[in-house]
Design a protein around this nucleic acid. Structure first.
Lengths: 342, 342
DNA sequence: CATCATTTCTGGAACGATCCAGAGGAGACC
DNA sequence: GGTCTCCTCTGGATCGTTCCAGAAATGATG
């Protein structure tokens, strides 16, 4: 004798229990205002007593929507990753929950193809929209998705595509670095150096411009105080040494925590103390507030990823409900996490 | 005049194009061996020319499966997180791809409730199974899911539940620490200390047992060489100082990179060099190979998360296709990432 | 009371796939 | 030729929901 298994309740089960029609139960869930208060109550009771939950697949089929947001994970680059993705995914999942959405992760089979993976999910209608994050060096996916009228939102500005008209959210790196300049200058530092990335990095130049602009606004010179190179600890170290032997800055602002780690090493090797007092300490500020920054007590510019996620989902939601509306980008301001390195 | 939109192709569209029935197209995709070679080719051509992709929602409805694996993200704990989650999610997404599965992220509304979120996804049949990761202190979710016969696999042993019979994958922390013992002892260290977590942590005691056991196997004493406390940098620092003033170890093995960071700080403060030579250097080994470890050049035990993910998905896949089979746990061995701290 | 508008509820059709039972045809064997 | 088997292919039913058009009940109005 087979075990008696209680069948999973459906709309019809609930309808029978409540003594109404299938459609009325559906309305109780999706448009409760259409029901008489007394009926609604009865249906609710039936739903509760049976423990009914609508079947997602059936709903998806009928409404042609999956309530899923696709997020492509690109290969984890050991060491260079600042660990932001972890925090970002948490924030995104949390933001999605409030709209009844969920995040679906996928990866490319061919990581060198920036479009791989999107088409399959789209064709099978497995996701309603995408969040595109890999915008560090231009973003082919953005244009491709745009051309196909696929709903998506980018984390990162379309630096290299002035025609782009998709919604995006980004963090104002320039403003973040300006904060850092103010911070060290307020503490009395005057020779404030910049260690950043190569000139072809849009993000790098944006952050650097915050340093240049704010330094000039504060009446300070920037010449001979700047270095550009790879995003490695080693470059940070070498750049710091070279600068110390040249213009002898008392503060270093870096385009990344990685570079800042190099600066800290250089200072330690040279026996120079770090801290905020320009008289006998050198200040160091990083960017991203990564785990290493937190651990080494490094002051760092922190991206408001939680806000970013909320804005991304808000834009997506608007895009999906009112596809017509013009949407512009959203620029959020980072904050400075003060620690003992400055 | 509305824009002419090419309708999304369905099975019927393809069937008409290929001059066969709907079911034949379905078979071409799911059971190609049932078709005559010539027919298969014709159907394939039709599929390609129309750019047909099966609709996921319809398939899910009919087959009562979503091909989605649920993964609950618990709140991101600033600082204490070792950043493993990032690498793990990548590995999991990648492993899922090879089985035609995808990862669906979700979060709890009430983070203190270890079961929150599971029921809703299960009731709506939005996911087929779960991967449960938060097994650091017992795991109520495992038993709850087990009782409901929900397919799931745990990353982490069921330490506290001997009756548990669900499949799991874990990393052999004891073996990892034993590797570390061998490493430093091979370099000539004899007084090798352990800095770990409180006694009530199963994982902590497991790792510690690797130290105790292997030390004794190598004929070395462990008494007065051990400290247990919170998983903080500060405790690591204080424990190291206390030990140095007592049994004066020349090597420190730590239950986490966080603790190891504290040890490194203590050594630096005391002007003691780190490295592998017991004559004039103190060796330090961490656990998890986190970003800070990589950045500070700390030798660390590295969990094989990529293998873990593959095994998890393999077990899930087996569980879903042969629900009857008994399944046991899988224990994977970590490796030692050698760096300059030892 | 008759009429009409409004609110409330109903049941058939549809979404796009797979399950299943069976039809049709080719070949084997007596 | 007849019968039986095996290989291919077909079409109706079905999964559980929402859309839609219209029916029934209710209330307002002359």
């Amino acid at each position: 004798m087979p075990a008696r298994v209680r069948a999973v309740p459906t709309l019809d089960t609930v309808a029978a229990e409540a003594g109404v029609s299938r459609q009325t139960v559906s309305n109780a869930l999706n448009s409760p205002h259409l029901l008489r208060a007394e009926t609604l109550e009865r249906v609710q009771a039936a739903i509760d007593s049976l423990g009914y939950t609508p079947n997602r697949a059936a709903r998806n089929l009928r409404t042609k929507a999956s309530q899923l947001i696709g997020l492509r994970l690109d290969p984890f680059v050991e060491g260079s990753a600042s660990g932001l993705m972890d925090r970002f995914m948490h924030a995104l999942a949390e933001a999605c929950r409030d709209c009844g959405l969920h995040v679906l992760l996928f990866t490319a089979e061919d990581h060198t193809d920036p479009l791989d993976g999107y088409e399959a999910l789209l064709g099978s209608r497995a996701v309603d929209a995408f969040v595109v994050t890999d915008t560090y060096r231009g973003n082919p996916a953005a244009r491709w998705l745009s051309d196909r009228r696929v709903p998506f939102v980018a984390f990162g500005r379309p630096w290299d595509d002035s025609r782009a008209d998709h919604p995006w959210v980004d963090v104002d790196g320039r403003a973040g670095v300006a904060l850092a300049v103010d911070h060290v200058v307020d503490r009395g530092h005057q020779r404030v150096a910049w260690i950043g990335w190569h000139k072809d990095s849009y993000i790098g130049e944006d952050r650097r411009s915050g340093w240049v602009q704010r330094m000039h606004e504060r009446g300070l010179a920037t010449s001979k105080l700047s270095a550009r190179g790879d995003d490695t600890i080693d470059f940070g170290r070498r750049a710091a040494i070279a600068l110390l032997e040249g213009a002898a800055p008392t503060a270093f602002l870096c385009a990344s925590d990685t570079l800042a780690m190099g600066v800290l090493q250089a200072l330690r090797d040279k026996g120079i103390r770090t801290g905020g007092n320009p008289a006998h300490e050198v200040a160091v500020v990083g960017f991203d507030d990564s785990l290493p920054a937190q651990v080494t007590d490094l002051t760092s510019v922190r991206q408001p990823l939680e806000e970013v996620a909320v804005e991304l989902v808000r834009l997506l939601d608007e895009r999906m409900t009112h596809p017509m509306d013009e949407q512009r980008g959203v620029l959020l301001t980072p904050s400075l996490r003060l620690r003992s390195s400055s």
